Simulated assay, not measured.
Amino acid sequence: MNQLCRQVSIESPGPTINDCVFSFEVPVPDVPPKGARIRVVCAGACYRLRRSPSISSISSVSSTSSFSSEISQDVACGTAPALPPQSPAHHGLRDGALFPGYEVAGIVESLGTEVEDNEEFKVGDRVVLYPYEGVPHGYAEFIIVPELQYLVKIPDTISLSVAAMLPTGALLAMNTVFKAHEYVENILRERGDNGSCKILIVGTGGLALWALRIAGHHYQNMKNRVSITVASLKDEGFLLAREYEKVNVVQWNEDLYEKQLIERTKDACQGTVDIVIDFGTTSRSLHRSLQCLSRGGVVFISSEVAEKLLPKFSRRAEERQQCIKPVDMGSIEQLRQLVELVGTGEIEPPPHCVFPAEEACEVVKKLCQSEIAGRAILRFHSVN
């Protein structure tokens, strides 16, 4: 196919953030025989950390930026490797290239020649893309999938901007909550009918807010036995967390000493907690999480940062009879379940803001200054 389409490339911000977004034309990709070509409507603005080439990050800027300032603090404390200096113009953004468009929602534009007429999908269907291994890179107007099994239909009750938040951050949060469930069950079984389990969710970016909503739904029939506390670093996240039902919230004000923050958290949780879901996951946040965790407790972290953090904390956790569990991206079956729960209104998505793809440069500037509440979504086409 000789037609061209627009593609946006978002790279590591320079000192003035004026040379990190590029727009150019690329050939429209051919449709795979057994797959489909998707007209991208919305894509989540995401990035990948460059500190370790072996770590492939799929976290959104808003999912992790709540703890972006901890990197420099880790360096100052001697608990993290030195990073390239950052300009004050983008103090809110970690050093890294924005991730190449895995959070994609759009419309089926064409089907492959070997796709049978009775297949589940047809041209015009609204879909979200599961982030399979080898998914094409780039914020482009069109993206292809080799097989239809990587697509999930989106009901009319979900906007495509919300759908674009589901395949990575929300899916990772769901898998983490599900992984924690077996530990919750064991704790409650051991403590009897009157026993309880305490969970601490660290961070108030997209990942943590998704985890809060998913956990709230998952344990709705066990509210009297499962308590959830959110540890928030930013004032904005503090307010967002409090808007969702009545959960305990403790603010991790970095102006305080570690001992004060740990004691503040224990007071809010009425003692140490049994399970921590840590989406801040810097050396400092994980160290603090372990201090708030009871003996025999477990911390869940994303597998994308486990390679860096486990060597530093595994022995310490073992000494306290604690466990650090890495969590991978969820399955496509979980993505289908997530789509259904959001579509029926059983789980409410966190806040998000939609911007035209042409404003990608301005979006990056706003993200760097922490001026966007919730997720940032780029829109390529005006489709509902």
Rank of each mutant, 00 (worst) to 15 (best):
R379D: 00
W252R: 03
I377E: 00
D125H: 14
E358T: 14
I228Q: 05
C197I: 02
S294V: 00
S285H: 07
Q322R: 12
R284F: 03
S232A: 15
R37K: 11
L129Q: 05
S294N: 14
Q220A: 00
L129S: 07
F22D: 06
A211P: 06
S52W: 15
G271C: 10
E340Q: 15
N186D: 11
V249T: 15
R284G: 07
V363W: 08
N248F: 05
G330H: 05
M329K: 00
C197E: 04
A97S: 12
E236M: 15
S69Q: 07
K198D: 08
L338K: 08
V339N: 04
A306D: 03
V363E: 04
V162S: 03
E348Y: 08
R213C: 00
V21D: 06
V184D: 01
P27K: 04
K365W: 12
I275M: 13
C20L: 06
H381C: 02
A82Q: 07
V108L: 09
F121D: 00
V342A: 01
F121L: 04
L207E: 03
K198M: 01
D74K: 05
S196D: 10
L172Q: 01
V298D: 03
V41F: 08
R94H: 09
Q337A: 07
L309H: 06
N186M: 04
F121K: 02
K234E: 09
F22K: 15
V104A: 00
G92K: 02
Y183F: 09
A45K: 01
P351H: 11
V28K: 15
D156N: 13
H381E: 06
L160K: 00
V104T: 08
T204F: 10
E120R: 14
L98N: 11
K153A: 11
Q3L: 02
E116T: 13
R288A: 08
S72M: 12
L310Q: 04
E25A: 06
E103Q: 06
G296H: 06
E185N: 08
G216D: 12
K259H: 09
G78Y: 00
L290M: 15
P100Y: 08
C42M: 01
F380P: 02
L160Y: 08
L286V: 08
C368L: 00
P15C: 03
A82P: 02
A231Q: 01
E371V: 01
V75M: 09
V75D: 03
E358F: 03
V40S: 04
Q251N: 13
I38A: 03
G280R: 01
H287G: 08
P146Y: 04
F67C: 15
L111V: 14
R264A: 12
D125V: 09
L188S: 08
V177I: 14
S314Y: 02
I17K: 12
V28W: 10
V202A: 09
T16Y: 06
K122I: 14
R189K: 14
C368V: 02
P326S: 02
G35H: 10
R37S: 11
N384T: 04
S68I: 00
V115I: 10
P81D: 10
V247F: 14
I158E: 00
E109T: 14
P81M: 12
I324F: 00
S52M: 07
G203W: 03
P27Y: 12
H381L: 02
L378I: 05
G280S: 11
P155H: 03
F121Q: 05
P15Y: 11
Q369P: 07
R242Q: 15
C269Q: 09
P13F: 13
S314I: 05
